[in-house]
Design a protein around this nucleic acid. Structure first.
Lengths: 196, 196
DNA sequence: TTAAAAAACTAATATCCGTTAGTTTTGTAC
DNA sequence: GTACAAAACTAACGGATATTAGTTTTTTAA
């Protein structure tokens, strides 16, 4: 009889969620079946339900785990004493770092949130909207303090968030670019541009 | 008996494809059913097959229509006589414009290409890889000519393409920002940065 | 050793999916 | 008007889906 293998302090539910993120990333949420997930976990499909409530619960866990991670980080930055330009730089850097550490989950949260069921969908969108408002606040204050050019804060936040999302396409194992180089170059371009 | 309504020079197939893009965008490709599409078109599901071959053919048409549109534009830019910095600016601008004109199709091509079947999947990835190489060439030549800072071309292209993709989240009808303002601000940030 | 709880299993359910077959209605050309 | 083609329809197929019910095996704790 097969058994779910856990490591460290992970519960069996944690293992299922991690494998779900891996599966949902490579095959999308709706096209992934619980049977495929069970194969990946090494167990029959109905056995999964001893540990989880439903397929959509898996998506919820992934999306909110990642959502909360971003919120925690930005709250820390809110209360520290950096200049606004430095705060924005910090945001770009932790985005890249969270993505590098939780590649599958971030990918799934970014791509599959629309399949969340109510009330989770509304809650997720609400969290995201508030997060964006916080970042827009950084830009606005930076403009007031003459650290930042007088750009449209909405466009600046949209540009930054979209750019860091592009890491999804970064081929981790191809020796093209190291994460460190990528992070530095992206920060440079978004803050200072590429034209001489 | 219901009938598919066409306008201008559109064939009925064109109508189906356009509605499919709309549906796939709001609900993703795999979660969209041919019955839902039929409802949207105003006809019974089997009737669709008088005009199309299969569900996956719809995805192919959408992805390659958009893919070819980008290729055509970049080919024009390749052979004109702008500076490299101006070429890059042109690329950013036509990306934004194509997205604005073909919102649904671009969204679907960006998000659902992974559900293309072979050999179309390989062909699509090949097209995209070549497209990115062309853009990296612009950056490299710009660096040689001292128009562009000595950045990593791969990172620069990744940043630019990801940033313009962010238009997906732009709320067209909310009076936040006009397309013109958005385009100008994004070009400014990607080329010249936001920090004073 | 034994009783209870946890976690696996098999079998099955109702539902939905893309698509085909076969038929009927609608539009077109003489 | 009549013949033909285009495009709609209804009915149905085989297969996949998430999940439940009920049972058996394994682990845990005394």
């Amino acid at each position: 009889m097969a058994k779910i293998q856990t490591e460290n302090n992970n519960t069996k539910k944690d293992v299922i969620i991690q494998k779900a993120a891996q599966l949902f990333k490579s095959n999308s949420y709706t096209a992934s079946s619980m049977r495929e997930l069970a194969d990946l976990v090494g167990v029959e499909a109905p056995s999964l339900y001893n540990h989880i409530g439903s397929k959509s619960e898996l998506l919820q866990e992934i999306c909110f785990k990642i959502g909360n991670r971003f919120i925690d980080q930005v709250e820390k930055i809110k209360t520290n004493e950096l200049s606004m330009a430095e705060k924005i730089e910090s945001v770009i850097r932790f985005h890249i770092e969270i993505m590098a550490e939780n590649f599958d989950e971030v990918f799934v949260a970014n791509h599959e949130w629309k399949h969340l069921k109510e009330p989770f969908l509304s809650e997720f969108l609400n969290i995201r909207r508030n997060y964006e408002k916080t970042l827009m606040g950084f830009i606005e204050q930076g403009i007031e303090k003459k650290e930042i050019k007088p750009v449209n804060p909405y466009v600046a936040v949209l540009t930054i968030l979209s750019a860091v999302r592009g890491l999804e396409f970064w081929q981790r194992n191809k020796k093209n670019v190291s994460l460190q180089e990528l992070e530095n170059d992206m920060v440079q371009q978004l803050l200072n541009g590429i034209v001489k």
